[in-house]
Amino acid sequence: MDRIYKYLLLAGAALAMLSGRAGAAASAVLESGEQAVKLLLTLLATMTLWSGLMEVVAESGDAARLGRLFRRILKPLFPGLEDDAAWDAISMNLSANLLGLGNAATPAGIEASKRLAALGKTGLRSLGMLLVLDNVGLQLLPTTVIALRQAAGAADPADVWGMTMLVSGTASVAAVLMMRVLQHRKGTA
């Protein structure tokens, strides 16, 4: 990230000075710190609220139930995977992502990666599928986006919810199909 970051900063600063926009750029730089805090305030509010609610979901056993449901539904996507501990980590990772719990998803994802990597070829194939599923970013409720839209004064902040589900749902199916075809065709992990 640093490689891109520093050159974008340099290019932006140079272009601002050369194009006579230095004054505007200076105010923008000075305001950027405060803008970061404003953005953080929205994120702080929404992450605190939804992490609280989702902890209740986890505690009432619904996250675990969702995980077991995943194992039944997703079995065809992870052929030959019988390891229970790996399945638990996969389910936890996917259900945490679906509920928008980044804090819980990452450790579970690393745990799943470790367990799958230890299983050899079948495991690596499953790990590829898991990563592709995670990378689509399917989420039941896009809390962060809705909160940012509300803060920006949208007339109906949650009106993008349905479209978000439609797009990420379709993309998930497309990603899984692509991965299946490619893994099957090549016969590699």
Binding site: I110, S113, L131, V132, N135, V136, A171, A175, M178, L182
Partner: peptide, 21 residues
Amino acid sequence: GAGVRKLPWVLPVSLAAYFFS
């Protein structure tokens, strides 16, 4: 975290899915 160096197809498929979205 898992010490896996590279995994075939994950990056191209993920980027293709993003492009598709």
